[in-house]
Design a binder for these strands. Structure first.
Lengths: 144, 144
DNA sequence: TATTTTTTTGAGATGGTTTATCAATTTCAA
DNA sequence: TTGAAATTGATAAACCATCTCAAAAAAATA
């Protein structure tokens, strides 16, 4: 039977192949764990995986999560003092409205905004690979 | 003659007064330098001010920029691995195009995108305080 | 103005996160 | 199975930001 994460595993393997990198037990383990999360820090993943493999090093977690970023499976986001690694397959193309009062997060998608982003990019000679849009404010309940 | 930054200096003094803090030569010097920038890191300001005052400490820069944030004159933003202190008095909010190849950063501003953001927010009952838009991709040079 | 009190400063130590180093191990193609 | 090449784990190092504390400066008081 195929893994639950066959598609992402394929993306990873393709990236590895293109860059003369190797498919290892650790990379498989970390990807499996990563895909179950919406976002996670390296430290949190380190502790979470300590049970499955007590010898898995923190450096390997960092290296691997950064590898996932290069492969387009993850996206790093600096949050406070730590780095959050977002699961791109969960997030899809969704942007976020974040309430600074209660922390509520509302996802949205807006084609017009995306189109304008493309316009801005091409006007500057850029080809967009990914983007991040976060709107911070107060939700209706917190405004009162 | 009045300083070029009389208004912001007033905001600072008011904040200091309200919190039993003192108006010092260093705070004045740092505010003057800060207001000339659109955004800056503590480290960059440290080097920039080293000529004017070689004994000005890095800790003081950090303390003072954080103070400006509390006073509403600056806004801290985690960008890459460092913290950028944005000058709030510069009206236009600047978004960023970031090259994943060479790290080049191009600032832009787009009224249409901002208007659409407001629309999305109000449709969801939110009032926007601030936002963050980053487009990641390859610049023309890195694409080849 | 002189004195006292309170806050700030500078220099370096410290703390927390991420990356670099390198010998030993693992992968993978021949 | 063998050997070249990449990866790993442990830890050192780098890095950014904050903390510490004696000395200095600023405001309050006399």
């Amino acid at each position: 039977m195929m893994s639950k994460h066959a598609k992402e595993m394929g993306v990873l393997k393709e990236h590895l192949g293109k860059h003369q990198l190797k498919f290892t037990r650790q990379r498989e383990l970390i990807l499996d764990a990563f895909l179950k999360q919406e976002h996670i820090t390296a430290e949190a993943m380190y502790h979470q995986l300590a049970r499955k493999d007590p010898h898995l090093g923190l450096a390997t977690i960092y290296r691997t999560l950064n590898l996932f970023c290069e492969a387009g499976l993850a996206q790093a986001r600096h949050f406070g003092t730590q780095t959050q690694y977002d699961n791109v397959s969960h997030k899809g193309h969704h942007d976020h409205l974040i309430c600074t009062g209660c922390g509520k997060i509302v996802e949205f998608e807006n084609c017009d905004i995306e189109r304008l982003q493309e316009e801005v990019a091409s006007r500057n000679g850029f080809t967009i690979q990914t983007h991040r849009l976060e709107l911070y404010g107060l939700c209706s309940r917190c405004r009162h």
